[in-house]
């Protein structure tokens, strides 16, 4: 699939911001089945953008702007060629030992309910089958609800309450997989809906788990499927915090309002 993406994050402040510093994980890396044709970050202020690579292999830009501004827009724009690999990842950069992906974080630490659920769903199954079953079971168990949770919601809470967004689905999957001693991680990026929707309010989040002989495989419990060529993979980490597209702090800028616009379409498709 030849995807064209534009992702704009706009901030408006009641009182002007004096300085902003952010880490941007907005730049995808190529791997088998994901070819980056072009990609760039645009900022509508005089600013510095210093690239580096974090321990998960993500491309990160340290962004800094000073002055006095009432609005700020960060946009990424690019073109990516994707292929369906049935969720199997090859050619990614791996800096950390697998064992690290067994570590639970504050967002993923499972409670007894999640552990029992994980055991039950995967009973007598191979690792791969078990992970497929887990993906489907989480999808069935949770109701998708964009209002019920936020970025700080833990897997335990989302599971207990039975609803959440893609991030919560992924955290529960990761918590469950790790409880079964299967290395797992969070992935942030974009997904194009099969119905051809072009405008989105948010990116997408899913999970990857490590399967013996296959390597990392991408599972999307929010859609009960493995990732395919509709997915654009940008960053990964132990949980959402490690892979979040923007983490930042500002001084001044009281009364911030945030507007996110994402458009994603297939090249050559009708506009």
């Amino acid at each position: 699939m030849h995807l064209i993406l534009r992702h704009e994050t706009s901030y408006a402040y009641d009182a002007p911001a004096r300085s902003v510093i952010q880490l941007l994980r907005l730049t995808p890396r190529p791997h088998e089945g994901q070819h980056i044709r072009r990609w760039r970050i645009e900022v509508d202020r005089d600013a510095t953008l210093r690239p580096h690579e974090d321990c998960f292999g993500n491309l990160v830009h340290a962004f800094g702007a000073e002055g006095s501004f009432q609005t700020l827009t960060i946009a990424v724009e690019g073109e990516v060629q994707t292929e369906d690999t049935n969720g199997v990842l090859r050619g990614t950069i791996e800096r950390l030992p697998l064992g690290l992906y067994l570590r639970q974080t504050d967002l993923t630490t499972p409670d007894e309910a999640i552990c029992a659920f994980a055991m039950e769903v995967t009973k007598a199954k191979t690792t791969l089958d078990g992970l497929h079953a887990l993906t489907v079971a989480i999808h069935e168990r949770l109701r998708f609800d964009t209002q019920a949770t936020d970025a700080t919601t833990t897997a335990q809470r989302a599971f207990a309450e039975g609803h959440g967004v893609c991030q919560d689905f992924a955290h529960i999957f990761i918590a469950a997989a790790r409880s079964l001693k299967i290395p797992a991680r969070y992935v942030g990026g974009y997904m194009r809906h099969a119905d051809g929707t072009e405008d989105y309010e948010a990116g997408h989040g899913w999970a990857e788990a490590h399967v013996p002989d296959l390597g990392w495989v991408a599972f999307d419990p929010a859609n009960a499927a493995c990732a395919n060529d509709a997915y654009l993979r940008v960053a990964c980490g132990l949980d959402y915090l490690d892979a979040s597209p923007v983490r930042g702090v500002r001084t001044g800028g009281l009364g911030e309002t945030l507007d996110v616009r994402i458009s994603m379409r297939e090249a050559g498709a009708q506009q």
Binding site: D54, G99, L102, R103
Partner: peptide, 24 residues
């Protein structure tokens, strides 16, 4: 030291005091 098998790997990697951000 982990490759030499002196310390079990999970004792390091599952340990919150080990900071992946420091790797490399």
């Amino acid at each position: 030291i982990l490759k030499a098998g002196l310390i079990p790997e999970e004792m390091i990697y599952a340990n919150p005091a080990f900071r992946p951000e420091m790797v490399g």
